[in-house]
Design a protein around this nucleic acid. Structure first.
Lengths: 233, 233
DNA sequence: GCTCGCACACTGTGATCACATTAAAGATTG
DNA sequence: CAATCTTTAATGTGATCACAGTGTGCGAGC
């Protein structure tokens, strides 16, 4: 638990500079530090991180390849815009892949994992009570990936992470509504399903958790960006 | 509609060199020109394509990000190995995503598309009869993506393409068995489902098509690579 | 004859530079 | 005063170079 739990932390100088830049950018994106449309330049990023162009350049292109950023026709890199339609597609993809990941993980789940998940869930509730939105998001991520990682998922995990990355820049929309609307605790249902050895129950809990969390976003999205990506005025 | 229909063709000098190298490598991988374990060097690729290191370097890293290639601990790039377990995971991921893509495409399908798919399917049968394995694979790909592209799929298509890329290096295993075992024509079933406005039927046809095509591979895989990643003689 | 050690070639990483394209101002003119 | 053209700054792309780590192959020593 102490050695390889936090591959994103800077415990080690992180072999290559490009990797460091990548991790930092990736974390910032997932935590919603960037907003849709924000443009980034190679030189700007390089200067901000104190490196030369090369690591920044490779980190940016890598994130573009993972669909976390988009390459504009100008060859400029920016945080992608999102339409309600694309968001629905993201939701369906998440449901399909994460339910599958949960089902694959199910045979490997046990009481110990259930306890671990319960602890994470408790921390998440604390975050809600404290109004700590960033911590809430972080613990939510920890919950899902702790479950999915039970079964070896060399294929599924990267795909799911790509989806989370694409959603990242829009999670800030949920900042104000943290804790305002009461939702069923789907995580609790998932834990109960694990303890009760109920695979279908686990799958349903995960699916509902995703739909609950993503459900309100298209509306917020339409409110924030009234005139699509087309032309302002 | 005439300008951006064929982004993969070389009708245009393809703006950047990196893009050309990327496309070429990607195509070679998908068509099974490389075998698992094959290592590639930046300088070697650059020399082969007549460019400098930079385009080759970025193309390789991009394919690594898309999971088409892997980055060995030595920082060397190679065609990934595959275990039967990973292959099953790939199959399940394909089923989940492609069935979803087919369902999303369904409302947009019509008679014209059915005719188009029927033509592709006929060409595929011709390829089988002629023993043209490469053409068979190409037409199979055309069939699936022609269907999935009916609905806007900015999220799903890249994910599916990533899966196809990961499978690419192992399709060569099917070379000898082309046409030797009779399989239900799931493509025909899919076309019939489209004509009959039967979404569930379409979904089942796609799922079975994937399972039929992928089913035999783990066995072939185990036969070819008895000693995991060890050493070829 | 076998093993250990050393030198050399090779690879990826990162930095720097040159160039063409594009966005942004600034100046000029109607 | 506003619109347009020109000049200028900035950006991505590609090339070249320097460096450190790795693996290989050759040779010396036991």
């Amino acid at each position: 638990m102490t050695s390889s739990d936090n591959p994103s932390k800077d415990k080690v100088p992180l072999a290559t500079l490009q990797e460091r830049v990548y991790r930092e950018l990736r974390e910032s994106i997932m935590l919603g530090h960037f907003h849709p449309g924000d443009a980034m330049t190679i030189r700007g990023l390089a200067e901000k991180l104190g490196t030369s162009m090369m690591p920044a350049r490779e980190a940016l292109r890598r994130l573009v390849a993972e669909r976390a950023l988009t390459l504009l026709p100008n060859r400029r890199v920016a945080v992608p815009h999102m339409t309600p339609e694309t968001f629905r597609e993201l939701t369906e993809a998440r449901v399909a892949l994460e339910v599958l990941a949960a089902r694959r993980a199910f045979p490997a789940t046990d009481e110990a994992l259930a306890e671990n998940l319960a602890q994470i869930n408790a921390q998440q509730d604390e975050a809600i009570a404290a109004g700590d939105w960033a911590q809430y998001q972080e613990r939510n991520r920890a919950f899902h990936f702790a479950l999915y990682a039970c079964a070896p998922a060399q294929v599924l995990l990267p795909l799911i992470e790509s989806l989370w990355l694409q959603i990242g820049p829009f999670l800030y929309l949920t900042r104000e509504s943290l804790g305002t609307t009461y939702l069923e605790d789907r995580h609790e249902e998932a834990i109960a399903a694990i303890k009760g050895r109920d695979e279908d129950g686990l799958a349903q809990a995960i699916e509902q958790d995703i739909r609950d969390g993503m459900g309100g976003l298209p509306a917020l999205l339409a409110k924030r960006t009234p005139a699509v990506t087309g032309g302002p005025v």
